[in-house]
Design a binder for these strands. Structure first.
Ligand SMILES: [Mn+2]
Ligand SMILES: [Mn+2]
Ligand SMILES: [Zn+2]
Ligand SMILES: [Zn+2]
Lengths: 151, 151
DNA sequence: TTTCAGTTGAAAATTATTTGCAATAATCGG
DNA sequence: CCGATTATTGCAAATAATTTTCAACTGAAA
């Protein structure tokens, strides 16, 4: 869980016999510039790049998101909307977690240092190489509690 | 996060204007009998019920899994296999978390009491009604570290 | 037992994500 | 810089999980 620059991205890709492409650089850049608290789906990213006339195909976007998540550069989030969302994976002190309403999917971020510590220790104990650790709280938000909505 | 019986399931369904059906009872029962550490996908559940000649349609299974997850009876898990898995949602001391290899999806369960405490406190602070809280560690298992597999 | 809204099953529809493949381009050795 | 090699891209087609539609059915309450 480290901070990536275009340079370190290139190095890490080369380590594995992969290449640095303009598409990969552009996508990393979008996430690095993403305001705190925002999460992008593949489709979101596709449209954002389109509007910046950086036109990258959806296939490449899907491939890159998966690649960067598996590398530990991005975090893959399940926010209850039926598709994945991504954000940059940052170490302490930016590392954070999500509280999600299962009815309306409203998401609140929160921090808690002990979680990352637990994750690090647990992975280490099992001999796993840590990429990301997330705590997800599923709950019903105040608004939805009142709403008495079906399901 | 409480323990459900057929009776309390009925009560909780009725509270919301819903009904207890044999299908719902059967599905809850399967999860109650599920050995610790096992997780079922919709398809898994479908086949397991089929082999027990309890034939419940896939649609109903999907509907019931979602319903029970939203009620807090089941936990919905993203174990990296491209489809959701479910297990019964149990309070302390059975409450646990998952360490997943992003390459081969091997999953290890672990316990940590402070996580549930953090979840309870965080939800409460925001006025959310807690249903479930899970910590998920994404990492590379020892075997996959050696394998040097692509992606 | 009657009523009525919630539930089911089967089939069709949707939608996120992946894959095949030919064209393109990043990297490397000379 | 140049040519060979092989990863990567874009597009279209394929997959696969999940949802929806709708008519028939059935719990629950009176
Ligand atoms: Mn976030
Ligand atoms: Mn489990
Ligand atoms: Zn809500
Ligand atoms: Zn593995």
């Amino acid at each position: 869980m480290s901070v990536y620059t275009a340079g370190s991205l290139k190095a890490e890709l080369h380590d594995r016999g992969w290449r640095l492409t303009p598409q990969r650089e552009t996508i990393l850049h979008v996430f690095q510039e993403l305001p705190a608290g925002e999460h992008l789906s593949a489709e979101d990213l596709y449209h954002q790049l389109e509007s910046q006339r950086a036109g990258i195909s959806l296939s490449t976007i899907y491939r890159t998101l998966k690649l960067m998540a598996r590398m530990g550069i991005l975090r893959e989030l399940e926010l209850g909307e039926g598709h994945k969302h991504y954000e940059i994976n940052q170490p302490y002190p930016h590392h954070h977690h999500h509280l999600i309403c299962v009815r309306c999917n409203k998401t609140i971020e929160f921090k808690n240092d002990s979680i990352l510590k637990t994750g690090t220790k647990t992975a280490e104990k099992e001999g796993y190489h840590l990429l990301d650790c997330q705590m997800t709280i599923h709950a019903v938000c105040p608004t939805c509690q009142r709403a008495l909505m079906p399901l």
